[in-house]
Structure formats: structure tokens, C-alpha cells
Amino acid sequence: MSDVLAITEHRRGELRDVSLEMVTAGRDLADQTGGDLHLAVISGDVDDYASQVNREGVDAIHTVEYGEEFNHDVYTQAIEELYAELDPQYLLAPNSVNGMDYAPAVAEGLSLPLVTDAVDLAEDDGLTVTREQYGGKVETTIDVEEAHAAVTIRPAEWPQAEGDGDAAVEAFDADIDESEIQSTVTGFEEVAGGDVDISEADFLISVGRGIDEEANIPLIEALVEATDATLSSSRPIVDNGWLPANRQVGQSGKVVTPDVYIAIGISGAVQHVAGMKGADTIVAINTDPNAPIWDLADYGIEDDLFEVVPALIEEFGGEVPDV
């Protein structure tokens, strides 16, 4: 009962990186509880995925062969049965989009306390979970005052596990009730194609909600033109329809790795950071000294973009538009 059960993730035939992060987070926690680390691999080519997650520190891998792709009604049933069989102390799932689709249901079904989007875990006579609040401006610690809990793990927060493991891979014969499967995945669609590929650019100037209004976008466009950069943005700019979807950097947009990334009026929310933390040099222009973007920035200007951007355009001999 001091064991940890961690759920892995795959999509369209590929194991997702977060699965290997689950191994690291799970091993860390199991070391603290003094228990074993069990992994669950559900649906798809389970043996292939099982061999990929069989890293150092894994004690057992349980596979559930059922269907190809993720389906929350299958995952929910399989995990609940596996949990009943193994009786672990803690259940870990990724805080991915699919994790958000089954973890709360599993926790509810098993009457487990749930803490989501953990950035740190400490266990000492009870679990303490660190998570962020208010868009990453503060952290909180949550104590779990029960012996068992379910926790979802923030992607890219723990390193990926390395080293070959020798865990036994066992097929778990989950009894999936088909009548409980009330949603059906009918396909996938790739979005955000089009004329530019921001993931290829060496120099990105990226605009966020700090720009305030659509009418101010030409200001950033003028800077982009004067510097021969490529224009990208955070999500709200695309949500508002001010720029097309292929400009969006982040978890649900593109992952970019330019030499220089200038974030203008972007707070640095975790889902944005997921797309740009691999940039070589990050420059922030932001009025808020507490914005999480400063955790990543190499250089920055803590000032009003409406002052700085026109001055910058002039520096490069561009024309400052009337906005």
C-alpha cells in the first residue's frame, strides 16, 4: 500500500514524452513512500509502448489491450480495476489534455482526493503537492490529509527517465463494459497549416494580450518588418481572431526554437512556455515584474510596450504606425 501507479500516454502510434516524465515523477515518489513503481499502458500497441517505458526504476508494467486510441471510458474502467487489484497508495496521471479527460473521473470513481497540475511532490507522513495559482504568479502547497490520493503531473516539469529497466510486463485482463463506452473517437484533424511555419524561423517577435486591441497589432507588424523577423503570438491573440492559428506558440500551437524570441506583452503561462522554452535567447518586454516570463527571460525591458516598441522601430529606421 506504499506503491505508486503511474499512467502512461500515447497518441496515433507514438508514445508521448510525458510518459517518461511519469516514470521519473513516479520513481521519486515511490522512493519517498518506500514502495514500488507500477506503470499502466492502456490501448494501442501496448507491448511496444511497454518496452519504451521500461526504464530504470520501474518495478512492474501492466498492459491493457483494448482499442487503438485513447478513450476516456476505457481508461477510466481499466484504471479503476487496476487500482483495485494493486491497491497503490498514490495514483499519478499526466496533466495533459487527455489526462484532464479521465483523471478527475477516476478520482471521483475511486473516491480519491485529487490535486491537479503538480510541479513538485513531497511525501513525509502524508503527501504535500506544490502547484501554481493566479497564472503562475504564486505557488501553493496542498497537504493531503488522507492516506491515498490521485495527482496529475505538469508536463515537462520532471526530466524523462533514462536507463534500461527490467520490469516484468504483465497483461492485465480488464473487464471493460462496452455499454459504458458512450463516446467514440472518429478521427483526428491537424490544424494550423498555411503560408508560414513559425517553427522554422530563427528570429521571432511574439505578441500577447498586452497589445490590448486588434487595432494595435500594426505596431508589432511594423517592428517585425523593420527587423526582418517572423511574427508569432500567444493564444488569446489567435482566439480573438487577430492573427491566424499558424502563428500560435505553445502547447496547443507550435513548438518553436529560434535563436532569439522576443515576448511582447506575454505573461509566460505554462501552456505558452511549452512552445518557446527551447529558444536560444529569450527577451521579455513586460510591465509586470512578477510575470512568470521573467523566469525564462535572458534579457528584458520592464516597461510599457507602447513606449518601447515605437522606439525600437525607430532604432531600425522603420515607420511607426499611428495606432
Partner: peptide
């Protein structure tokens, strides 16, 4: 359902 990396899942 909007998944990561510009992929959407179509679900009934």
C-alpha cells in the same frame, strides 16, 4: 477536443 501540438480529436 483540442489536443497538444495542433491536433484535434473528433469525438461523438
Amino acid at each position: 477536443r483540442e489536443l497538444e501540438g495542433g491536433v484535434e480529436e473528433l469525438t461523438e
